[in-house]
Design a protein around this nucleic acid. Structure first.
Length: 201
DNA sequence: GCCCACACCGTAGTCCAGTT
DNA sequence: AACTGGACTACGGTGTGGGC
């Protein structure tokens, strides 16, 4: 098996897991959206020279392609999405490299603040989660939050009046937190939708 | 105080030689 | 074909000194 149909016998079969490859039986195919890409393929796709992609790798720690035999880079779909976003910010929106770095950092902080204690926007190996995965995670958190809220409400309804006042205060705080979290989640979802639309264009 | 010329510095690539 | 690392280039921004 090869990395793809267009670039035969580059690496041995064990270099990249089969499950991560998008390969047709015929051997002559376009890569699917989930296929790994070499630096030359990503460079073609983004209309950016290869050396620029390597440079970005040193400048943006979020860009971390897999490296296999001989130190060759294999870009995952999420890497390509991130690089597309970086290219857009740099070349279309006039950001500097530092500006993009700051934007990516702020975005990570915002996302973590919006969904406390649960979602790692940057995974343990330093890579960004896919959009769909992130949205799903946030929706799960939202549902869990509502469930917690309803649970507290039910408990309060059964408590004696003596402690009710204190719990009501806690409930008000929870409701406030709920509103803020919902607002933050809505902002993040809007931002993700905007990014997705750009990618699909 | 204002303007101009020049030097210096940082940023963003680009090129190249040698290697895998 | 793709890798690394260092040297190099182009360009814009900033600082400084001198003349008016």
């Amino acid at each position: 098996m090869t990395i793809d149909g267009t670039v035969p016998h580059r690496e041995s079969a064990h270099d990249v897991p089969d499950a991560e490859m998008d390969v047709s039986e015929s051997g002559s195919c376009e890569k699917g959206p989930h296929a790994f890409r070499t630096i030359s393929e990503v460079a073609d796709e983004l209309h950016v020279p290869q050396h620029t992609l390597r440079l970005w790798e040193t400048q943006f720690h979020q860009v971390r392609p897999l490296k296999r035999g001989g130190g060759r880079r294999y870009y995952r779909p999420e890497d390509v999405v991130l690089l597309t976003r970086i290219a857009d910010l740099l070349y279309n929106q006039g950001y500097t490299v530092k500006g993009v770095q700051r934007l990516l950092q702020e975005k990570a902080v915002l996302q973590m603040a919006a969904v406390p204690q649960s979602v790692d926007i940057v995974t343990s190996d330093g890579n960004s989660m896919a959009d769909a995965e992130l949205v799903e995670e946030m929706q799960t958190q939202d549902v869990a939050l509502i469930a917690d809220y309803q649970q507290v409400e039910a408990v309060v309804a059964e408590l004696p009046a003596a402690v009710e006042a204190g719990l009501e205060q806690a409930l008000v705080q929870l409701m406030g937190q709920n509103v803020r979290l919902r607002s933050d989640l809505a902002d993040v979802l809007v931002e993700l939708e905007a990014i997705r639309r750009k990618i699909l264009v």
